[in-house]
Simulated assay, not measured.
Amino acid sequence: MKILHLISGGETGGSRKHVVTLLSKFPKEQVCLAVFQEGALSQEAREAGIKVEIFEQKSRYDLTVLRRLANFINKEGFDILHTHGPRANFLTTFLVGKIKALWVTTIHSDPKLDFMKGGLKGRIFTKLNLWSYEKIDYFFAVSERFKNNLMDIGINEEKIQTIYNGIDFTEPVPVENALKTEFVISEDDFVMAFVARLHPVKGHDLVLKALKNLGNPKVKVLLVGSGPSYDEVEHLIKEFKLGAQVKMLGFRKDVSQILSISDVSLLASESESFPLVLLESANQEVPVITTDVGGVKELVKPEHGWIVPVGDQGGYERAMNQAIDEWQKGKLVDKGKALRKHAEENFSLKNLVSLTTETYKKLLKVKK
């Protein structure tokens, strides 16, 4: 069984982590990663010992790479082409009938929201993305909610398998005091880590408005991530006069270390699948405040943190205040330990790899 994973290559968020961690657990001769551009993903994949092929495009709309990609798939004898994301899905539609491999995709996000606030271009890309779904042989959904989303747009339930994300749980890294010094964080500061791509769907405006309304200068937020909304987020920080409380850190490889100095981890998205950052927070025994997206209710129970309805400004502020109150009383650490225990028992990388492998084998058996 040989599998080729195809993804844009420019990803810096959860889908990047998902692909690298998943492929790193397969035999090296069994899997290969194909991308359309060099970036953090291809670099990390190589460092993990994963074979990487680059099919560089002159632009996002360059279709000349398709012939070379099709030839590569057929020559190498891949049994399964596993795509991730709208760009890979759209381009693969042109390979249908030209490759022998079975086409599988993982749905990491709500396809109706992938291009939100993109205007006319966003609406066109959304339609093209949904059009590509008609050609796909099988779907992996990373939450039951996303499985239901697929069924709502007409995908047969028999063509969908829910496979939750997972990570290798390790000992929490020790507190990085050097980072506290770098970010000017004192012992009496309450620190919230917000690890998310800078994109409208991630809800940075909700968090910043909540922080402004708290009016507590001892509350600090570490924003980790890059993306198209950088200027908008920076503008809000200036408008709300939060420069002393919010650090924009950009893309970082030391997320675990940043979580180690944080008291709570934030997620404020309007749509998500099963966010890996919540599992990374669990690994560090950091409780979470999250909006009710994707499969978070499977992971976060009341004893692990707070779940707030999407877009509920008041609810998010109340959750922040409750977290601060529990921190001051010395109770917040218990939530983090309980989250770690629950996550480690139910959302391991071992489970992800096992179910993925079983599904691949089932699909190939049916194909024969």
Rank of each mutant, 00 (worst) to 15 (best):
L364W: 10
I185L: 12
T290D: 03
N213E: 15
V366S: 03
V264A: 03
V221T: 06
L332F: 11
P309H: 10
E232H: 15
F90V: 15
A88F: 13
T21W: 05
G227D: 09
A40I: 08
L242G: 00
I136P: 00
V308M: 11
R252G: 02
S229H: 14
I163Y: 06
Y360P: 00
K335L: 04
D188L: 01
K301W: 00
Q328F: 09
L223M: 09
G336R: 02
L236S: 09
I99L: 03
D152K: 11
F72L: 07
A338L: 12
V333L: 13
V246K: 01
K329A: 13
L69E: 02
L6D: 05
L179H: 08
K180C: 09
G154K: 11
K100A: 02
I107C: 07
A323G: 03
G227I: 14
A338K: 09
G295F: 08
T290R: 05
E38N: 15
P174D: 13
R197E: 12
W103D: 03
L198S: 02
D325Y: 07
K362A: 04
L352C: 10
D254G: 04
A141C: 07
L23F: 13
K28T: 12
F115H: 10
D254K: 05
V35G: 08
Y133T: 05
S226D: 08
F183N: 00
E176C: 08
D325Q: 05
K337Q: 08
I7Y: 10
Q322F: 03
A101C: 14
G243L: 12
D137W: 14
G77Q: 05
F190V: 01
Q37L: 11
L6K: 04
L236H: 07
K212Y: 15
N165Y: 04
R252T: 07
K117Q: 13
G305E: 04
F55H: 13
H342R: 12
N321V: 02
E171V: 07
K241M: 02
L81N: 03
T357D: 12
A101W: 15
E317N: 05
E171Q: 06
V255T: 13
D334K: 12
K75G: 00
H18I: 05
E76N: 12
F347V: 05
F115L: 08
K218Q: 09
L242H: 04
K127C: 04
V207P: 10
L63D: 11
G9M: 11
P302W: 13
E38F: 15
R123F: 08
Q30G: 01
K297T: 06
V224F: 13
K51Y: 14
A210I: 15
I160Y: 14
E234D: 14
L242Y: 08
I50P: 01
G305D: 02
R252M: 09
V224H: 03
K212I: 03
V296G: 03
V20L: 07
E187A: 06
D325L: 06
L33H: 09
L33M: 12
K112M: 10
F26N: 02
K368I: 07
D110F: 11
G122V: 13
V195H: 04
F140M: 03
E272A: 03
L259V: 08
Y133W: 12
N74T: 04
L113W: 14
R67H: 06
S354L: 09
Q161F: 07
E76H: 11
P86R: 11
L259P: 02
T105S: 04
L130R: 08
N129C: 11
S132V: 10
A338T: 10
